[in-house]
């Protein structure tokens, strides 16, 4: 794909993203009903859950791109993995920040060590490790190799972390969660949520494409610098 094509794709994604974000905001602040027991604060759920979806999906992309890199040894797969990891970690941070803001008024505390929360935190640690690893290796081929290995091992670990945490928490007392989000969503809420998911994904795909372009340009620059022997 040429740089012009990337540019056009970015513009289209940006326009679509803005459009969807506006609709999502309208849905969240105007259309959806206020949750009965939790009140207004429950609306943070429309950022929280889509962010979690994006983060998990992004880390899945890191895994797929890592496998693809090791099989093909094409650097572009490494750019995909790196870009997805960065987009994923930002979403993961969003999940970890919005979670406690929601939890404080509802459960009466900022943080509970429940399985989902703890697993998300571990997820954050794993992919911070991934980004740190990339940061501390200079040569691009080597960085791609090592990051891919860690990207695969890290992703395989995620379900095990979740299982371990779930078994661990079921054996320990937990705060009673007043009407978790599983207890039946209003159809309006469903529609609102879907808009939010669409907006969040589009926006993050836009960010991903920008990040990928940056990596592509960087490699192109290195190639040109090498040819010019500077």
């Amino acid at each position: 794909m040429s740089e012009t094509a990337y540019h056009r794709l970015s513009l289209a994604l940006f326009a679509l993203g803005v459009f969807l974000v506006l609709i999502a905001w309208y849905q969240v602040f105007v259309v959806v009903p206020t949750e009965r027991t939790m009140g207004v604060i429950q609306r943070i759920f429309y950022i929280h859950l889509p962010s979690a979806f994006v983060a998990f999906f992004a880390f899945f992309v890191v895994f797929v791109a890592s496998v693809a890199y090791l099989l093909t040894r094409r650097l572009r797969w490494d750019w995909v993995a790196a870009s997805a990891a960065e987009v994923g970690i930002v979403s993961c941070i969003a999940v970890l920040i919005t979670g406690p803001i929601w939890a404080k008024p509802v459960w009466g505390m900022w943080w509970t060590w429940d399985a989902r929360l703890t697993s998300t935190l571990v997820l954050f640690l794993i992919y911070m490790g991934y980004l740190l690893l990339r940061h501390y290796v200079d040569e691009s081929d080597r960085r791609a190799r090592l990051a891919a290995v860690f990207g695969i091992l890290g992703f395989v670990d995620v379900p095990i972390v979740y299982m371990a945490n779930r078994w661990f928490r079921t054996q320990h007392p937990q705060p009673v969660i007043a009407g978790g989000e599983g207890s039946g969503l209003d159809p309006q809420m469903w529609i609102g949520l879907l808009w939010c998911v669409a907006a969040m994904f589009t926006w993050n795909i836009f960010l991903f494409v920008q990040r990928y372009r940056l990596e592509r340009t960087r490699e192109e620059f290195i190639e040109l610098a090498r040819r010019a022997r500077v």
């Binding site: 571990v122 640690l125 794993i126 911070m128 490790g129 740190l132 690893l133 501390y136 290796v137 200079d138 080597r142 090592l146 290995v149 860690f150 091992l153 890290g154 670990d157 095990i160 972390v161 299982m163 371990a164 945490n165 661990f168």
Partner: peptide, 25 residues
């Protein structure tokens, strides 16, 4: 892996500890 990085002493715990949480639990 960490022997291949610039910060080998830091990298090993940063990579190993999060992934071994299930083992630890």
């Amino acid at each position: 892996v960490s022997a291949n990085t610039r910060m080998r002493e830091l990298m090993l715990p940063m990579l190993l500890l999060p992934l071994t949480i299930p083992v630890l639990i």
